[in-house]
Amino acid sequence: MTVSELPITAEARHDFADLASRPVLKRKRPGQLIAMVLVGLFALMGAYVIVTNPGFGWPTVAKYLFDIRILNGLLTTIELTTIAMVLGLVIGLVIAVMRMSDNALLRGVAGAYIWFFRGTPLMVQMLFWGFAAVLFPTIGIGIPGGPMLVEWNTNDVLPLFVAGILGLGLNEGAYMAEIVRAGLMGVPAGQSEASHAMGFSRMETLRHVVIPQAMKIILPPVGNETISMLKTTSLVIVIGVGDLLYNAQQIYARNLQQIPLLIVASLWYILLTTILSLVQARVEKRYSRGNTIQARKA
């Protein structure tokens, strides 16, 4: 059928140029409205319960939110997170580089480290470090089977805080090693090759060429790990380190206000997590130098 034979539809009688010049009407989407109402209702119900249920003990929450014991615990939590993450990153970097080494022994050692620390529960590792003094009452430097040159009482040099750090950091190192390794492998081999061809050593190549480019692959999961670590530090309660959760527990053990104090701890955890998320976004932006998406925008 030719064009002239096409049936004339309603639209065909309109002046399209004229129609197109007017704004397009928005089609109504009733499903969205229903969803909005439902979500609103649930939110109201939740808010009602939170406000009216006296069990939440909001006045108690307010009373303890800035309690010195809570703030001290908070400081300990921040310290544990920071030191354990730094330790984890350093160990992770070393283990990752060892795992990619030419030397089979170094590869094996790195593999064994990851195998062991990922293979046992963190809680068990934590308890182990807490009880290390039972296994090694003294530690020191000396000749195996012979006399000791220097010797310390384990409980003196390994306070519970340090035991907590070791538990968290050594375990984190194993996971971090895999994150770092993924990052290092994500940098094309040609980058290292070009660097070697210029005369840079393996270490210089890692430092100047590979690691800076691996950072943008490594950072998102590291941010994730840091946020996770913030809350994992609460495991130190099993060896009695006075972190945020432990101190909250100590308080409710006396006044029996469990729920309000757990809310106090949660509020601080959530605040710190929020701050860390913001920091993460900023840091990632800094290390995205020269990547294609940014380049296209420029």
């Binding site: 094309p188 040609g190 980058q191 090759e193 070009a194 060429v209 800076p212 480019q213 020269g290 990547n291």
Partner: peptide, 10 residues
């Protein structure tokens, strides 16, 4: 090199 291998972060 064939694939240039310029350092991408510089």
């Amino acid at each position: 090199f064939q694939s240039f291998n310029l350092f991408g972060h510089m």
